[in-house]
Nucleic acid binder design. Structure first.
Lengths: 194, 194
DNA sequence: TTGAATTTACAGTAATTTGTGAAATTTGAT
DNA sequence: ATCAAATTTCACAAATTACTGTAAATTCAA
């Protein structure tokens, strides 16, 4: 295959960053290669392009598939398995966010819920539980918001982001005109938090 | 010191999750211990509570301070250094997000900008650059939005999150009444994306 | 059903990361 | 300035993780 300098530097960068992102260097490079590739690649092509062993490629691909970051497909008349990344970068972004949530935050949320049900054994425990409750509520609100947002289509999401901090004006407006959003909303009622 | 079972399980969980979060087990435990502690702790107390060597604590603390996740303070009449986490979990969350952006996405954004300035050497390069441009634009929009949002105070941010997907209604409204947000906004104009 | 092509599992090794104790340095009270 | 308390650095050992080659398993065409 033989990569051009441009592609090579992109691939190497992803390899280096991989460790910061919780994947290893070779998996990072594999993803980068697929991301910029014009067509799906099979494992042998990737092994050759990156200079890794065939089995390493196999492991890495398995991991990337488990993250839903690469998809497997078959090309007509070729029994080998070909791999590629989704075309739409927004879809990629959402998949990444979902998977990270699932792996990196959901387990903690579950642990916190359990811990908050325990009976505190002393003052230190009481304080610890109060702190855990704060953490729980923050994560809960953030992840609920995230799954709300994720339901929006990409177009809408983009508009929202371009709007940026201007949403603040909307909140001010809403304060004045609470009616127009319908009745089941409770976010204006003054119970709020601690 | 001797941790209660409740606190111990919290601390151990953070240790295990640490690897998913890009910090190591001991650093994760240190952070958890400080997070639930009623008062600031010094390095010796932490070493004893967690059963780590004094030097390991020193290293870990240095890392946590570099992430701005723990702060150093001095207690009157005691020359040792005491450590604690910020009280407000929203501040913690924002700090974490800022630091992760700085370490995990800014370098990639920089690399992409550089790559997009290169002259493509062939069709493969042209395609790769197109892909990189998509990635760049996504990251750029997302991080700009993030720094916009970060300027909001915590109260407003909370309201916004509680609103969730209902912001969509605002966008619809805005479509109809583009005037009320003032003139410099271009997000409604139909140039949009590819 | 056979067998060639392909993928996967696994065991051994290499590389990297983590954690420790001892030595060196820094700090601040006297 | 001195000295003891406290912190940091560093070289090494231990543990973990990554990578390879080979062997086993699977797949699919004939």
């Amino acid at each position: 295959m033989n990569l051009t300098p441009l592609i090579q530097s992109f691939v190497l960068h992803f390899g280096e960053m991989g460790s910061h992102w919780g994947i290893n260097r070779t998996v990072g490079q594999m993803y980068a290669l697929l991301f910029v590739s014009e067509k799906p690649l099979n494992a042998d092509e990737m092994a050759e392009a990156l200079g890794f062993s065939r089995s390493n490629i196999s492991m890495g691909l398995k991991e990337l598939v488990s993250w839903r970051l690469v998809k497997l497909q078959h090309l007509p008349g070729d029994r080998r398995e070909y791999y590629s990344t989704p075309d739409d970068v927004w879809v990629i972004f959402q998949t990444l966010a979902e998977e990270r949530k699932k792996r990196e935050v959901d387990p903690t949320l579950t642990m916190l819920r359990g811990a908050l049900l325990e009976t505190p054994s002393n003052d230190a425990d009481k304080h610890a539980q109060a702190r855990m409750a704060q953490m729980h509520d923050l994560i809960d609100l953030t992840t609920s918001w995230f799954s709300d947002i994720q339901r929006l289509d990409v177009e809408t999401l983009q508009k929202l982001m371009k709007l940026g901090a201007q949403v603040q004006k909307f909140l001010e407006l809403k304060q004045k005109l609470p009616a127009f959003l319908g009745g089941t909303d409770s976010s204006n009622s003054p119970e709020s938090k601690d």
